[in-house]
Design a protein around this nucleic acid. Structure first.
Lengths: 209, 209, 209, 209
DNA sequence: CATGAATGAGCCTTCATTCAT
DNA sequence: TATGAATGAAGGCTCATTCAT
């Protein structure tokens, strides 16, 4: 009994390890420059073993992306409560926190944007769609917060929630990409604050302010 | 003399044709799924001929990117006059125009973002850097306009010009990507206006407004 | 004791099942396109188990062929009594019956000629010889009957028993192959009668007849 | 002009050489045990070159079979004149000659029956059908001669032309297979005569004869 | 004894690149 | 100069076989 369980556990573990190694390899060398043998060698397993866990090369990038997708989904669901704010300030902080969170999910590990935003986009249409949907989901979440902000009267009533959310999302992804290159906390903070000021105050000088 | 020139002309023409065909192919099938033979076949030339014009496969994507880079540089330089505005309204319009222009350069042909933002990013570090620099250049241009706006007093004096420019750039690229998928003029207009309102008015409700 | 016997029985049973499943698979997909795993899966056993009963893939086709050989030998020995005829007519009927029998052994199941005459012939020289010997044995049996027929004066005294037997055998195998494709009883009867008439009457018109 | 022709000639020659080498290899080691690399190595060419001439491994066996088919068709058409006989004796000789001819086509080179009758039958249904049709064509030709013989009154009026032809064909193929193994001229003659006597005289003792 | 996880030899096929014509 | 025939490294994938559990 336990024998079977332990074996299954080992299998699951190896499957995870393969996904991780593939992720690692795809991030470092790119999907197209990575061979199944490279992944297997990293793990010290025979390359035939790979095919006991995944159907083919295409299958593994799918799993890598799915893995990232679920990580992101989990992280997003943890923070997802657009209704929790009682004051403008609370709202701002909440939005800032969720924004940081979204960015962090991708920024946490520079391999994530590399694989998700670049490598996965060159595999085929299906995967491209898959990733696009993930990004759309992030924009939808942003939109939900904006929508709530409008409802509470914190945000402009005439706000084009959907497209403003997409714009903000674009800015956040720019941040992620910036982070991917430099990974400098100070820069990240400045970028983050620039986005927030852009959001709440705009860039224009205020006659009254 | 003229014979040589004419020959040179023909050579240049074919070189251009190869670049265009490669661009076309990379956009449609991706860099890694495109063979030299595919490109040559499209042009009706022998695939050995390719190697008389380009050193290798890596070389051609470089030229494709360089070609896009120069197209973008030209388009940017045409519009590049951050000092031309005399009133806030003029400034806004000028910035809107240059923003539209930047977006248009990439959006004009959906193959451009496909090749530049996806395919080129999976070739190697050198090319990735190359494209990053192009995007940085775009952000720098945005920054120049912001800088000028601050100088003229149209924009907030405490504006973090550099990072706000990057944020806006990210939003514009999001627009480009959106356009790449749908190519719907109405959507593009809405997205564009959302970005502009975000820039000048922010999203917050104004007590006084 | 009985426990061991029962175990032995079970082992023998599984061995049989594996042979049958292999026969089935080889007939359907061919020896070279059949994997050990396919055979094991059909039986619902682990494919490692296969190797407890057979040394390797080569071994199993040997057993399949041996199994067919013994089936054929049994069927042949049941009918084998070239001395039993007392009149020409009896002789003819006896020969017809044994001929039908020989054909039936192979024709009974279209998988038999498929495996024996085609698949087994592409494995290696040894197996090819094995099958050839089986066919030779069939020809020898035919020859025995012819020999007896000559001895009794029913058949031509100058009959080249050996090679005529081979020729008749070839005709019978043609019938088997025909049957393998169509399995139409009427066709089979016509074919069978054509062979018998060919044997006894030849094809030539008889001046006196 | 001549340059192109010479090149084309060389290509045709190499294509032929590949077909021949494949034929050779399939006959010696079998289709399934022969690698593309084996064929290429025999010819001293790179194995990539193979794929400039044939789409894949399946393609080459098709060409090998087609090549044999056309050789056989040519040989058959050379002899094909069932109407040329004026006397029974002439008819007999004619039939004997065409029979010898049919047998010779296959027997001439023991690799032919090996590839055609065994290897090709193991590849897939399509090829199996292809070869079956070839054998049917041979039987049809035999049938045509029998039909003519009946018309001229040389053969029994009640002869089942079609199936008798198939039976005779089976006998001839048995001869071919015999030849494939031994290649002894004396044996071949005996076998051939046994078939002819079987055809014209049958095996039965004749009361009057 | 049964199992199936692991293995790696081996095969087919592609394609960037070279070079003789 | 243009060509395309030739090449072989490289890579994806299969499957017979072994062996620890």
């Amino acid at each position: 009994m336990t024998g079977i369980n332990r074996r299954q556990l080992k299998k699951d573990e190896l499957k995870r390890d393969i996904i991780d190694a593939a992720f690692e390899a795809f991030a470092k060398a790119g999907y197209h420059n990575t061979g199944i043998a490279d992944i297997a060698e990293t793990l010290g397993i025979g390359h035939g073993t790979f095919y006991r866990y995944f159907q083919n090369k295409r299958d593994i990038i799918d799993h890598v992306v799915a893995d990232l997708a679920s990580r992101i989904a989990v992280a997003m669901s943890e923070e997802n409560d657009p209704t929790g704010a009682r004051t403008l300030d609370e709202y701002r902080h909440q939005v800032a926190r969720i924004g940081e969170s979204l960015v962090s999910i991708l920024s946490e590990d520079p391999r994530i944007p590399r694989v998700l935003l670049f490598e996965a986009m060159t595999v085929d249409d299906a995967l491209r769609s898959r990733v696009s949907e993930m990004l759309d989901a992030m924009a939808s979440m942003t939109a939900a917060y904006l929508h709530h902000g409008v409802g509470l009267g914190y945000l402009r009533a005439d706000l084009d929630v959907e497209f403003t959310a997409k714009a903000i999302n674009g800015a956040m992804i720019a941040l992620v990409l910036q982070d991917m290159q430099s990974a400098d906390a100070a820069i990240r903070t400045r970028f983050s604050e620039a986005i927030q000021r852009l959001m709440y105050d705009g860039i224009a000088a205020r006659p009254g302010a």
